[in-house]
């Protein structure tokens, strides 16, 4: 298999498979999780401003008072790499084009140098987060194989994408193919790992907000 064939495979059958597994997994897991049911709260509700499921969905995107100081690396590193990933995925020209091809909508993009810079910053934040996971007793204690694995699976597409555009290590064609392949692995792994929090965190925040809003507590 030549590198161009490899690239064409990743762009063709590989992508097809990855998207299929991703969709299959996402639907299966979402239904599996959210049809487990829950009891209606029979206590007379108390209403309070700012207390609702939706409020919590948004509010939890900001650190609760005092937490930023207690865990600056988690928050700053977390913000940088999540926002970085979002910028790269949703504002990088080739990615927007892919989205356009897959779902038919598109929007303006950012210059490739900016995306490149974002990738560097994102990777730096991710390495910092990894170091934090190794260093901090609590994080190290909680970490399982899955945590290291999902870190790598998230890091690799950024690294290979950046290396491809910077012409590092391997010829562009091979790097691009590896980049697409790594992104496909990410798609496949996502529904079956903690990366699924990208979907379930909305549900979780909503439930938490809802349950506590019933008692009049904005959480």
């Amino acid at each position: 298999m030549t590198d161009l064939q490899f690239l064409t495979w990743t762009r063709g059958p590989g992508l097809d498979l990855a998207v299929a597994v991703f969709l299959l997994g996402v639907l299966w897991r979402l239904i599996e999780i959210y049809t487990l049911g829950r009891k209606k709260d029979l206590a007379a509700p108390r209403h309070a401003p700012g207390a609702s499921g939706l409020h919590t969905v948004f509010r939890r995107s900001l650190p609760p008072p005092g937490m930023l100081k207690r865990s600056p690396v988690s928050y700053i590193g977390g913000y940088v790499f999540h926002i970085g990933l979002a910028i790269i995925v949703f504002l990088g020209a080739p990615h927007v084009l892919l989205i356009k091809n897959l779902v038919g909508v598109s929007w303006p993009t950012l210059p490739s140098q900016f995306i490149g810079l974002t990738a560097v910053v994102t990777m730096a934040a991710m390495v910092l987060m990894l170091a934090d996971r190794i260093n901090k007793p609590v994080k190290r204690f909680l970490s399982t194989f899955e945590d290291w694995f999902t870190w790598a699976v998230t890091f690799l597409p950024v690294l290979t994408g950046w290396m491809a555009t910077q012409h590092l290590l391997l010829p562009y064609t091979q790097m691009l193919a590896l980049h697409i392949l790594s992104a496909e692995i990410l798609l496949v792994v996502l529904p079956f790992s903690k990366l699924f929090h990208g979907f379930t965190l909305f549900g979780s925040r909503w439930y938490n907000g809802r349950v506590n809003a019933h008692k009049g507590v904005p959480v």
Binding site: L36, G37, K39, K194, F196, S204, Y207
Partner: peptide, 13 residues
Amino acid sequence: DAPIASYFESCVH
């Protein structure tokens, strides 16, 4: 129940 399922699936350690 569903909230518990959602919580466990969301935890990022």
